[in-house]
Amino acid sequence: MQFNYDNFIDSLTLMGVGIATVFAVLLLIIFLGNLLISFVNKYVPEEAPKQNAPAAPASSAVDPNVAMAINLAISKLTGGKSKAEKIEKI
């Protein structure tokens, strides 16, 4: 078998160009990744939590005016020491 000088030179060149390019691309990706991390940390640090739609009042809920009146009554009776935490229709 004869030594193929042309192929040797071509593949040696390709080796140099190839390895250099693969390194260049991955180093660029590392650089870009670091830039993206800084960018995201600065401008999009946390996702805004989705605003939940206000819950529809339950059918058993008590009218706020009634609740306020009940709380006022309890406050007057106990001298402001107690208040109603939960009011339910029975």
Binding site: N4, N7, S11, G18
Partner: peptide
Amino acid sequence: AVFGAGAQFGIFAVLLIASQ
């Protein structure tokens, strides 16, 4: 991630040999 580039060495090393 840079080692993802180092481990492509085999491709080009074998290209050099196989081209013969």
